[in-house]
Simulated assay, not measured.
Amino acid sequence: MLPRLRASLRPVSTSSPSLALRSMATAGKGGIEASMRAKLQEALKPATLNIRNDSAKHAHHAAMAAQGGGNGETHFFVEIVSEAFEGKTQIARHRSINSLLSREFDEGLHALSLRTKTPAEVQKEQERMRGA
Results as ranks from 00 to 15, higher is better:
A43W: 13
V12A: 14
K39R: 10
T48P: 05
G69L: 07
P3K: 13
R93Y: 08
H110M: 04
H94T: 02
S16K: 01
E125N: 15
V12H: 09
K39Y: 02
L9R: 02
S23K: 05
P3W: 09
Q41T: 11
A20R: 05
Q126S: 14
L5P: 04
A27T: 05
G31K: 10
T89E: 10
K124M: 12
L112Q: 09
R130W: 12
L2N: 15
E79Q: 15
A63I: 05
R128V: 12
L49M: 06
G131R: 13
R22N: 14
L112K: 03
A25Y: 05
T74K: 10
L109S: 12
G108T: 03
P119N: 00
A65G: 04
Q67A: 09
A27L: 12
T89S: 15
P11C: 04
A25T: 11
K124I: 06
I91R: 07
R93E: 01
I80H: 04
S96Y: 03
G31D: 07
K57C: 07
I51M: 11
N53Y: 02
R37P: 06
M64G: 02
A66N: 08
L21E: 15
T26H: 14
N71H: 03
R93H: 00
K45Q: 13
A7E: 12
A20W: 07
M129W: 11
A47H: 08
M64Y: 10
L44G: 03
T74W: 00
V12D: 01
H61V: 10
L114R: 06
L109V: 07
S99F: 11
H60F: 11
A120I: 00
A56T: 04
A20F: 08
V122G: 00
E127H: 13
A43L: 13
A27M: 08
K29H: 05
G30P: 04
A132W: 10
A38R: 15
P3V: 12
F105L: 12
A111F: 06
P11I: 01
K88W: 00
P119I: 06
I97E: 01
L112F: 04
R4M: 13
T26F: 08
E127Q: 13
N98L: 12
I97Y: 07
N53Q: 13
A66L: 07
T14D: 06
G30W: 07
H110T: 06
K88F: 02
A7S: 15
M64W: 01
L112C: 03
L49I: 07
E79A: 11
T48R: 09
R37E: 08
R103Y: 02
K29W: 00
Q41F: 06
A66I: 04
T118D: 06
N53S: 08
N53V: 09
E127M: 05
R130N: 11
H61M: 10
G87F: 03
A7T: 08
K117G: 03
E125P: 00
T14I: 01
K88G: 01
T118A: 01
A7I: 10
Q67I: 04
A56V: 07
Q41Y: 10
A62R: 14
S23Q: 04
S13E: 09
G68P: 03
S16M: 06
A43Q: 09
